[in-house]
Amino acid sequence: MARGTITIDEKRCKGCELCTSVCPKNLIQMATYFSARGYRPAILVDPHAQCTGCMLCSTICPDVAITVYREMKSRKAQLVAA
């Protein structure tokens, strides 16, 4: 399975929690701290590198806070990324 990851931009995240509800592996939780904007941002908790970069979280994010990465091995994968 291709490995992937995400970054969540704390400047954009409003702590709405929608992404936490769609991650197939429940890898996104709400932080306990507050971001500079006063929201508890969503954070990726993926100690076992289970994230596959499936983009469900970025699909539902209303604030384009999530950037998704995926490990590129096969040539086809490169095309996807282009």
Partner: peptide, 29 residues
Amino acid sequence: LTDDMQVVYECPDALTDVITHYCPGCTHG
């Protein structure tokens, strides 16, 4: 994030980088 990973999703060009005024979770975004 490892160096052999590539972006597969990021903010579209047609959007400016202005953070929206919409309420948290509002699907206008």
